[in-house]
Amino acid sequence: MTTILKVQGLQKRFGKVQALSDVTFNVEAGEVIGFIGPNGAGKSTTIRILLGIIKRDGGNAEIFGKDAWKDSFEIHKKISYVPGDVSLWGSLTGGEIIDLFMKLHGSGDKEKRDYLIERFELDPRKKAKGYSKGNRQKVGLIAALSVDSDLYIFDEPTSGLDPLMEHVFQEEVEKIKAAGKSVLLSSHILSEVERLADKVVIIRQGEIVEAGTLDELRHLTRSTVTLETEKDVAKMLNVKGVHDFVQKDNQGIFSADHKYLNDILVEATKLGVKKFEAAPPTLEDLFMRHYEG
């Protein structure tokens, strides 16, 4: 696969604050990377370095094989970016701003622009000063999605959008991916990342603490098992690999270590299994594993 974005050992300090101490990850062609972490973890600082807005203190950051700082002008010709709070020119209409962004980028599809305006239910004739936060986000998203880019960088792009518009955005990202384009998606909406991302990068206090596909990361946490048996299900309480056992009527609900699932099943069959459901950990489980406490 072709590496579109490469970050290696990225470092950034603001005065006495070490914002980034060791950030390393790649984005390959046609890949959607979910970049997650709480406020202050270093997501936006990393993105600002990638965009050439601020200069890194150490490490490397490359897009399309070019240096993110030195070659930012060339890089910007092939990327689209939407921040979490889009600022607009209040005296211009939404439509005028979208056209201006497309012109500044140097490419754009007017038919796609009109299609996206309809999909996102934006009134393009209204002055930007009268727009809500959600409508400002729509302007940024429509402008970014109306141009042909090889890399799309979204930093909390659906902030302020209602669930219906979030769904529209997700569908458009899936189309980008199907077209072989790459996406770096920073989002607090973990269900959104779980639906769209091929891989997840979790950042904590300026360092990457986990990276990989959801399937690769899920082995790190336990599945949630719901078990109903003919005999007393409470006998599962002391089975190796069973944790946090709770009994509700005839059912036992517990967390199970993956490496002991076979042993757990063997013990469950001795009790006469009537129901056995095992749910893998969600992205939220993986995320909270690094931030609980």
Rank of each mutant, 00 (worst) to 15 (best):
K6H: 14
Q8M: 04
K16N: 13
F25K: 08
F25R: 09
E28F: 07
A29M: 07
G30P: 04
E31Y: 10
V32R: 08
S44M: 05
I53L: 14
G65I: 05
D67P: 03
W69R: 04
I75E: 09
I79T: 11
S80Q: 07
Y81I: 11
S87V: 05
S87M: 06
L88Q: 06
W89D: 13
T93R: 10
F101D: 09
E111C: 02
Y115T: 09
E118F: 03
Y131G: 00
S132K: 00
S132P: 02
G140W: 10
L141W: 03
I142R: 01
S146H: 12
T158Y: 00
T158F: 01
G160K: 00
L161S: 00
H167R: 15
K175P: 02
K177A: 07
K177Q: 15
S182A: 15
H188I: 05
I189Q: 15
L196R: 12
V200S: 07
I202D: 12
E207P: 01
E207V: 12
E210L: 12
E216I: 03
L220K: 15
L220H: 13
R222A: 04
T224W: 04
T224E: 14
E228W: 06
M236P: 01
V239Q: 07
F245Q: 05
V246R: 12
F254T: 09
L261A: 02
K270P: 02
V273A: 03
E277D: 11
A279C: 01
P280S: 11
E284Q: 15
G293R: 12
